[in-house]
Write a protein that binds this DNA or RNA. Structure first.
Lengths: 201, 201
DNA sequence: GACATCTTTAAACGCGTGTTTGATACTGCT
DNA sequence: AGCAGTATCAAACACGCGTTTAAAGATGTC
């Protein structure tokens, strides 16, 4: 059945998302998919081709074109983007968080597919944030100023979502409840915005 | 000779620092140390004990007690800490950067030793930054406010040093020259400080 | 129903890994 | 010189990995 291919793809998405390419084993993937070890090679060729298939599948935009978000103010737009990234990354065992974790593994161990993954994931957010920031501060979205601000935001969001061990060790009281996520998102947006306003003046 | 043990330790520090625990191989380590593969097990027991020995050795404070830095203003202190972290991480093939990379690998793949590594590396900086920030903003160093600011700083610094692939893809013109490092450090310090002043008012 | 094609299976292969072995060289002491 | 203890060596071992193989089963076509 062609359904086997689909089960393998889903199992592979989970295992690659949880452990990354190197640590994931074909036997583990096939075990979860109730499939023979040889079937990965039969259906996909080899491990790397299965992996790229997983990436292509995970980062394919959904069918129904998502409506462009109602254009809020640039400030609210930035706040919403930050909050959405935090939520998407921290909602465990969801398909969206699997995508996010695949992305993080790509960044930690770059492969030939990494540039394409970046183009499909981070770059749209990067470009959008640059535009909003340029608008607020009255600077060119291509300027160092705008880029520095966007990397500040990305760095902080990735820090909270990827380095959970470090954060937990230094700040045990942080449980990442929805309220605390809101507090973090508000803080990240706040320091950037207050600096932007200082520039605009 | 006992000098073999030392050569193994140095080679292991390099290989573990470059590749992390899993990807590092005993044959690679022994090759660099011009030693037989069996000698790791003879001198250290097994791979994991060699690794912990590397960690203990790398994070042992140097003999001569380093003089406490001349107490500058809190603002200058924060700027210097940020700049120092960036430099230490990005200076290639230096012993200090090996320490830093060992640290990053520990955070990416937490082990039993991770809490101790955090205590020896990040926590001192974390506590110092909290104190300085508390002073500037007039808040408790234990408050959420102070902690949020410190995690913002750490997140950004780690982002630039660990996610070089991502940064390079999104911002090809950034070459991490000394001038650009200074610009980044100044920006990270700037957004935090300008927000702190806003709070203090 | 018979044949061709696509799927699935258990078993094995080749390779790299950490580790162990048993022999050999070296060292320091009496 | 002789000997005990340490250090080093080449070789092999056991295991897990990705991959291949050859046979068996399922499926569709005429």
């Amino acid at each position: 059945m062609d359904d086997t291919r689909q089960r393998l793809l889903q199992a592979a998405t989970e295992v690659f998302g949880e452990k990354g390419y190197d640590a994931a084993t074909i036997r583990d993937i096939c075990g979860r998919a109730n499939a023979n070890v040889a079937l990965v090679n039969y259906h996909f060729g080899d491990k790397m081709e299965l992996y790229t298939e997983v990436l292509v599948n995970a980062f394919r935009p959904p069918e129904g074109a998502p409506p462009p978000p109602p254009s809020a103010t640039p400030e609210e737009s930035i706040r919403k983007i930050i909050r959405a990234m935090l939520d998407k990354a921290l909602d465990q065992s969801d398909q969206a968080s699997l995508r996010y974790r695949l992305m993080l593994h790509e960044y930690a161990h770059p492969s030939a597919a990494t540039p394409r993954v970046i183009d499909l994931t981070l770059r749209p957010v990067y470009d959008l944030l640059r535009k909003q920031i340029g608008t607020i501060a009255g600077v060119d979205p291509d300027s160092d100023q705008a880029r520095l601000h966007v990397h500040s935001i990305l760095g902080q969001v990735i820090h909270y979502t990827r380095s959970s061990t470090v954060v937990a060790a230094l700040w045990p009281d942080l449980k990442m409840t929805p309220e605390q996520r809101e507090m973090i998102a508000e803080h990240i947006a706040g320091i950037t915005l207050s600096h932007l306003y200082a520039i605009a003046r």
